[in-house]
């Protein structure tokens, strides 16, 4: 097979980092969303994502066997050690941009977790099956909001179009192939296999939303190798504040 525990751990960390960082980003809306209902909707998604991150990072820690658990991985790593995709670390912007980012990511993550439900790694398959149910809801509501904003007022259409445009250059990175050894072993999936399904899902919603698909441009990549935008460091400084100030503090 050629894929050892460390390889699988690295893969689980990249999956977990995606969920963790987007969960943290969405948490920033808590208390600031346009309405109470939207506040709860964003916070619910954030909590689902942080739950996924806990499962994935705890599992990665177990595979590594170096005494790190999910908390250690979340709070004791610096920017270069994170392997989340760039899309999830992008600032929230306005509600339109947050929804556009969620729409793209949740549609991707849904197809990814559905495919990973058949992973040869039983733990990853189990986590993916559980998470796919949550993400199906995220994708659905984000898609509904795309339509409400895109086909809403002149201002909402313009803002969501700008948000979509901002997020678009980070889409190709989502489809970068993970470690070939892991794909061969059936642990990981090559996201290229579901790119047509992703494009079809996105296009269908954009049609309903009266939004144009942004023009393809040079993709911005690097997150999977730890090359992040300036935004991740700021996010971590807030997320990790307590552990940086009081290392290993406990409740």
């Amino acid at each position: 097979m050629g894929a050892d525990r460390k390889d699988i751990a690295r893969y689980a960390i990249s999956l977990g980092d995606d969920s963790l960082i987007l969960g943290q980003r969405l948490g920033e809306w808590c208390g600031h969303a346009p309405t109470l209902e939207i506040d709860l909707f964003l916070a619910n998604i954030a909590l689902d994502l942080i739950g996924q991150a806990t499962l994935l990072l705890d599992y990665a820690g177990t595979l590594e066997g170096e005494g790190r658990d999910g908390d250690k991985l979340a709070f004791h790593r610096d920017v270069l050690d994170f392997t989340n995709c760039l899309l999830v670390e992008q600032p929230n912007g306005d509600f339109g941009r947050t929804i556009a980012r969620q729409f793209l990511f949740s549609n991707f993550q849904l197809l990814l977790f559905q495919a990973l439900s058949n992973s040869t790694d039983a733990t990853i398959a189990g986590i993916a099956r559980k998470a796919a149910k949550e993400v199906a809801y995220h994708a659905r509501v984000a898609s509904e909001w795309m339509v409400r904003l895109g086909d809403g007022t002149e201002e909402s259409a313009q803002r969501v179009a700008e948000g979509l445009d901002w997020s678009w250059r980070f889409v190709d990175e989502l489809f970068e192939a993970p470690d070939a050894k892991l794909i061969e072993a059936g642990v990981a999936v090559d996201p290229a296999s579901f790119r047509p399904a992703f494009d079809a899902a996105i296009d269908a919603v954009l049609r309903d939303a009266c939004l144009a698909r942004p023009a393809d441009r040079r993709a911005t990549v690097g997150g999977r190798r730890g090359h992040h935008s300036e935004h991740l460091g700021h996010l971590l400084s807030q997320m990790q504040f307590l552990q940086r100030t009081y290392p290993d503090a406990r409740w």
Binding site: L36, E37, L40, F41, N44, E144, R148
Partner: peptide, 20 residues
């Protein structure tokens, strides 16, 4: 009660507000 743009969104908002 919830505020929502239309019936479909009202169902989503109700799910998030009252059945979590």
């Amino acid at each position: 009660s919830v505020h929502a743009a239309d019936a479909k969104m009202a169902i989503e908002a109700a799910r998030d507000t009252y059945t979590r």
